[in-house]
């Protein structure tokens, strides 16, 4: 149920993001979604792509530091309080969100969001019990 995500270290310099995107484009890596978190002079670029291994190889070959981590992709009802209902299910079990961001595509009328939790394994169990849609990699990239 977990999705593999690529995180790349970027210096906060003009051109470092566009350089990375160019490398991935040239390698034919399709970016499903991405998010940049920054902390002063550096940032972490998080990428969801169907071909995470290839993407990692390409960016490392180009000289970037990269690591693969796990996240989950959740179906979030597209209505007021939709996200709140998902978070409430986790909160009641004491699972905290480390970060989250929106997936670029949607399924039906709902939004898809990417989540990283402190305890990933327990989060998946709790989410499924609460009846919240958790995407597998196969389903996610079909959308």
């Amino acid at each position: 149920m977990k999705i593999r995500q690529l995180s790349v270290f970027l210096e906060n310099l003009p051109g470092s993001l566009s350089g990375l995107c160019r490398i991935l484009a040239e390698a034919g890596v399709n970016l499903s979604t991405l998010m940049l978190s920054e902390a002063g002079e550096f940032g972490l670029l998080r990428i969801i792509t169907p071909d995470v291994e290839k993407a990692k190889q390409m960016v490392e070959h180009a000289g970037y530091a990269a690591t693969i981590s796990e996240v989950v992709a959740l179906q979030v009802p597209d209505r007021p309080g939709g996200l709140a209902s998902v978070l409430a299910a986790l909160e009641s079990q004491g699972i905290s969100v480390e970060y989250m961001y929106a997936f670029a595509m949607r399924t039906g009328g709902d939004a898809i969001m990417i989540f990283r939790f402190a305890d990933m394994d327990r989060a998946v169990v709790v989410l499924q019990k609460a009846g919240i849609g958790v995407f597998t990699a196969v389903d996610l990239f079909k959308t």
Binding site: Q5, S7, F9, S37, E38, A39, F42, G43, L44, R46, E60, A65, A66, T67, S69, E98, R116
Partner: peptide, 16 residues
Amino acid sequence: VEVTGDMLRDSVGEME
């Protein structure tokens, strides 16, 4: 200091 793949964590807080 150059960040290597081994050093890199998927957390801005841990990198700080």
